[in-house]
Design a protein around this nucleic acid. Structure first.
Length: 477
RNA sequence: GCGCCCAUCGUCUAGCGGUCUAGGACGUCGCCCUUUCACGGCGAAAACAGGGGUUCGAUCCCCCUUGGGCGCGCCA
């Protein structure tokens, strides 16, 4: 048995892969990479009512998009139900667990009573020490039972957590966890422990909403005589208002972040810096992340999700991405972008060449792929161009420059940013018009907008024929 | 209600008893660059929640208060 690090990401497929889950996956992945170990994927689908195939697909798609590849085959927890039950029966036989015939109604009453007496709602252990005869009688009368863990009632349970520190829970506050439901299926609490053990998981990194569970699970480990894995409960991500991330904070699933035009590398970088740090360093390549990542640098306080910072970071990544690569990323993301189909339809090699040529000017002005697509719109828009109100105003003021420029452009031997710039500068010097007074009407005519990349780059990217035609469209009115 | 966790600029954070007139990043506000918008450069405002200890000395250690969060299912 080696000491190789084994982590796991264990989402329940009751919805998409949300941003907190993505970060948990990232941390597990980084930790495994850092120590040359493996990250396993386990789909916790023991809740048959709420688990869906669509959710499983969404989670896998999300991990895939984020570039977080797990090792080996994904384990579907439900398929291991027989093994879970086997372990429960082992505990039953060893006297570490017992059959409980309390009905739902009894449990409800217990909770009601506790609430009325301002005590913690807890199972009272009424079947914990019953005689064999009692139990046999109950079973014979056809009553359904669950299997409960006979948890220690005195003393305390310590979770030695790598993030939270040494956390102590009084055992009197932890009741006898249900291991097997009355239909014989395993509960999450049992399944997790059995699976983590069977999968040789060495490090459990998960949200700190599981911290109390860690204590209950410790009891199961102890009952089975199994070694407890290293625990690391990371703080949850909160919304901008400090409350738990939810629908009203906007985008949720990682697929939504893709549709918003974020690059996976940027999202990873943003996520790793939420609750984890390495000095003042903000930007990490994947390799740098792996090399620097470890549990002690994870903070204990919850972090708020800040779109502004994500956006800024994404802008950095876009600018740092080589043009061809960024074009490929845009193309791959088109199916998910609003209005992306419009470009997708026109994307032939000629259009790719135009986009590539304009990319340096485009990517500097875009913080997301959505903005990149929007900024590139003028390249594939059909003539006559629709005009923004501001562009229309500009044209109303400076249409005569378009007319005057036309013969000069026609006379150009070659059509480049440099040649068109020379022509425009010569014109502006000769007529005394400020460069801006000439450039803005040109921009309006060529792009339909008041803002765009540098106008001479636009001229070159559009090419002579398209440029002249667009100028003519606006010059004649 | 009970248990547990957390607490540095608006946000993410550095800090691990003296180096702190508390550093970086995002955001905000100025200025510069400039054909627009960006990018970039320069600069500014902006924080140790409060109260007690411990110590020669606390942002850093302890306690309390306050404020947040999480958990308390035959859900995961």
């Amino acid at each position: 048995m080696s000491d190789a690090v084994v982590t796991r990401f264990a989402p329940s497929p009751t919805g998409f892969l949300h941003i907190g889950g993505a970060r948990t996956a990232l941390f597990n992945w980084l930790y495994a990479k850092r120590f040359g170990g493996k990250m396993l994927l386990r789909i916790e689908d023991t809740d048959r009512e709420r688990s869906t195939e669509a959710a499983i697909a969404a989670i896998i798609d999300g991990l895939d998009w984020l570039g977080l590849k797990w090792d080996g085959e994904a384990i579907h927890q439900f398929s291991r139900a027989a093994r879970h039950a086997e372990v429960a029966h082992e505990m039953l036989a060893a006297g570490k667990a017992y059959k409980c015939f309390a009905t739902q109604q009894e449990l409800e009453e217990m909770r009601e009573k506790a609430r009325a007496e301002k005590r913690p709602p807890r199972y009272d252990g009424r079947w914990r020490e019953r005689s064999d005869a009692d139990i046999a009688a109950a079973e014979a009368s056809g009553l359904k039972y669950v299997v409960r863990l006979k948890a220690p009632q005195e003393g305390e349970t310590v979770v030695d957590d790598r993030v939270q520190g040494r956390v102590v829970f009084p055992n009197k506050d932890l009741d006898d966890t249900v291991l097997l439901r009355s239909d014989g299926t395993p509960t999450y609490m049992l399944a997790v422990v059995v699976d983590d053990h069977d999968m040789s998981v060495t490090h459990i990194v998960r949200g700190d909403d599981h911290l109390t569970n860690a204590a209950r699970q410790t009891h199961i480990y102890e009952a089975m005589g199994w070694r407890v894995p290293v625990m690391a409960h990371i703080p949850l991500i909160h919304g901008s208002d400090g409350a738990k991330l939810s629908k009203r904070h906007g985008a949720l699933g990682v697929d939504a972040y893709r549709a918003l035009g974020y690059l996976p590398a940027a999202l990873r970088n943003y996520l790793v810096r939420l609750g984890w740090s390495a000095g003042d360093k903000e930007f990490f390549t994947t390799q740098e992340m792996i090399d620097a990542f470890d549990l002690p640098q994870i903070g204990r306080s919850p972090a708020r999700f800040d779109f502004a910072k994500l956006e800024n970071m994404n802008g950095h990544y876009m600018r740092a991405t080589p043009d061809a690569e960024l074009l490929a990323a845009l193309e791959a993301t088109l199916p998910y972008l609003d209005g992306g189909d419009m470009l997708a339809r026109k994307l032939d090699d000629a259009m790719r060449a135009k986009l590539l040529g304009a990319m340096p000017g485009l990517k500097e002005r875009a913080k997301t792929l959505v903005e990149l697509l929007d900024g590139a719109r003028f390249l594939f828009a059909d003539r006559p161009l629709p005009l923004e109100p501001k562009a229309a105003d500009i044209l109303a003021q400076g249409r005569q420059h378009l007319v005057a420029l036309t013969p000069r452009f026609s006379a150009l031997a070659d059509w480049t940013a440099a040649s068109t710039e020379a022509a425009v500068r010569a014109y502006s010097e000769e007529t005394g018009a400020k460069l801006g007074q000439v450039a803005q009407p040109l921009r309006a005519a060529l792009t339909g907008r008041a803002t765009s990349p540098g106008i001479f780059d636009v001229l070159e990217a559009l090419g002579r024929d398209e440029s002249m035609a667009r100028i003519a469209d606006q010059a004649k009115v």
